[in-house]
Amino acid sequence: MEQRTVDGAVAKAFVYSGVALVASLLVSQGWLMGFIPPPSPALSPEALAAIFIERKMGIRLGTLIQCICYTFWLTWGMSITFYMRRMERGVPVLTYASIANIGGGYVFFLLMPITWAALAFRPEQIDPAMLQVLNDLVWFIFILSWPPFALFMIFIALAIFRDHNVPTVFPRWVAFFNLWCAVLIVPAGLIEFFKTGPFAYDGLISFWFIYIVFFGWILVMSAVTLRAIATDRKMNAVPSRAAPHLTGQASPT
């Protein structure tokens, strides 16, 4: 049976790219742009335009950083998919689906900074009403695009539940954690209906809770994947052939 070893150094770099993504979010959206929390959707177009005019340099810098670091969604997502491949037997359906999903996911990520950058390009000349619609669009792209990300979480959970390795590549609690996150980001859909309150896109549930869950999920999955990489290295250090769990056979221990 073909060995499914993962290049630990590359995998590790991929994992840390996800950590960089989260860090870049705090630096760019939080510090440079001042959009954590977002400007209220109930703000008047003129007040919103004033924010963009005043912060245009911060927004330009921030979106540049985001364009670079949000691309890491692709590399980070793949670091998990390497290990999903090892969990699956036969045609790796969940792995294929995840690869397609991740490829689509980073488009959402990049559309955000690109749209913001366009708004900060000549904010003085844009009709405030149009600026408002496009700014809404950025938050809608980010928060309303929850379904494919929830699907990825469900794929991870399914792969762990069906993992044939002994011991499993990821601990089984990770599956339940992913299901929980998938359920938790469902209220994101509510931002369509409210301009104020906890379910508006600057609200306690639809912004704070969902952001913390989603980016917390990235950090937790990074830690779990790093542990799987470390386990690999220990297994490979053993001189006797490849570690049994790498070839998909049950471990004797």
Binding site: R172, W173, V174, A175, F176, F177, L179, L184, P198, L204
Partner: peptide
């Protein structure tokens, strides 16, 4: 049950505690 389900249950209880308080 499986230990993992308690992580899910605890997580959901956290979400709903926040919702109740809000």
């Amino acid at each position: 049950g499986e230990a993992g389900i308690w992580l899910f249950i605890a997580g959901d209880m956290v979400l709903f505690s926040v919702l109740f308080a809000v």
